[in-house]
């Protein structure tokens, strides 16, 4: 059996609440009296349980979406997987290597939510900086930076300072730096948050492209429609607990319903189908004119005049 891209077992994270905030917050929303499975010693201080008893297993090559409302523990989970935050209990591994080990990070690229990079660096310098942190140098690094600038479509902006970049461009350069050392796993925290539809589409296309190249992607999002488009599997977190998990099509399929989409169908034809359905014990429950999505409309409209 090969190692899972990400394995999380029995993960619990309790954040201490700074003393001064305990007084100012009268009725904290997500503070439990005595969280389940948390020892009394841990609970003797007021604390926030960000993640509770989480088990996850992400197979190599899949795109996994960690979904949930703001504050449900998605970011904390990702940070623990990346070793940025230490778990209170439980274990996380990346390709079989414990997250607390620095070398586990060789196989992973990370794009934080709303990333800020050093504003005084140009796009290319940013990639070179992060490349050096991953042990790249010389021709190899230059080549890799060129490739990635091409991949994320920032070749023309390579010599511009990041302070002049738009939100979408920052997100793309962030994606490029996450990929600089050719990681097998990509962790993206809200990759499309705050990006306009065109930028968001670009990023989703990139993710699909990466999946095609065999890269495992773990992303968190609260934008469900977008996650639906690209994720193979999703897990839904609520208050730090994984409430639902599975393959996307299985989760959202309505077992006893089938959709037909017809072009140039006359009213007579539809009536005929309806009769046919009734005669075989089926029932037509909806009949409506197909619509495009607002996003599609927006993308078509905006891409006509300008070539983005």
């Amino acid at each position: 059996m090969t190692d899972a891209a990400v394995a999380v077992r029995g993960l619990t994270k309790v954040f201490p609440v700074p003393f001064h905030r305990q007084w100012s917050r009268r009725k904290p929303r997500d503070i439990d009296g005595q969280p389940e499975g948390v020892t009394s010693r841990e609970a003797s201080y007021q604390s926030v349980v960000a993640v509770r008893d989480l088990d996850l297993r992400i197979e190599p090559g899949e795109v996994y979406g960690l979904l949930g409302p703001n504050g449900s523990g998605k970011s904390t989970t990702l940070k623990i997987i990346l070793g940025l935050v230490s778990p209170t209990r439980g274990q996380t591994e990346i390709f079989g290597r414990d997250s607390s080990l620095v070398e586990s990070r060789e196989a992973v690229g990370f794009l934080p939510e709303n990333p800020y990079f050093y504003k005084y660096l140009t796009g290319e310098e940013t990639l070179r900086f992060f490349g050096k942190l991953c042990g790249l140098s010389g021709a190899r690094l230059r080549e890799r930076a060129d490739q990635l600038l091409e991949l994320v479509g920032l070749t023309n902006a390579r010599d511009r300072r990041l302070s002049t970049y738009s939100k979408g461009m920052l997100q793309r350069i962030g994606l490029a730096q996450a990929l600089i050392h050719e990681p097998k796993l990509l962790v993206l925290d809200e990759p499309t948050a705050g990006v306009d539809p065109a930028g968001s589409r670009d990023i989703r296309n990139l993710i699909v492209d990466l999946k095609r190249r065999g890269i495992t992607v773990l992303l968190s999002s609260h934008l469900l429609a977008q996650a639906q488009e690209i994720c193979d599997r999703v897990g839904i977190l609520a208050d730090g607990v994984l409430v639902c998990e599975g393959r996307l099509e299985e989760l959202i399929a309505i077992e006893n319903q089938t959709e037909l989409v017809l072009e140039n169908a006359s009213d007579a034809l539809v009536d005929q189908i309806k009769t046919l359905a009734t005669s075989s014990n089926a029932k037509l429950i909806a009949r409506r004119r197909s619509t495009t999505t607002l996003e599609r409309l927006f993308l078509d409209a905006t891409s006509e005049g300008s070539n983005k």
Binding site: V17, F19, R41, S44, Y45
Partner: peptide
Amino acid sequence: MMRFAYHAAAL
């Protein structure tokens, strides 16, 4: 000082 997190581990 008040900025210290008063949690067992932190303490």
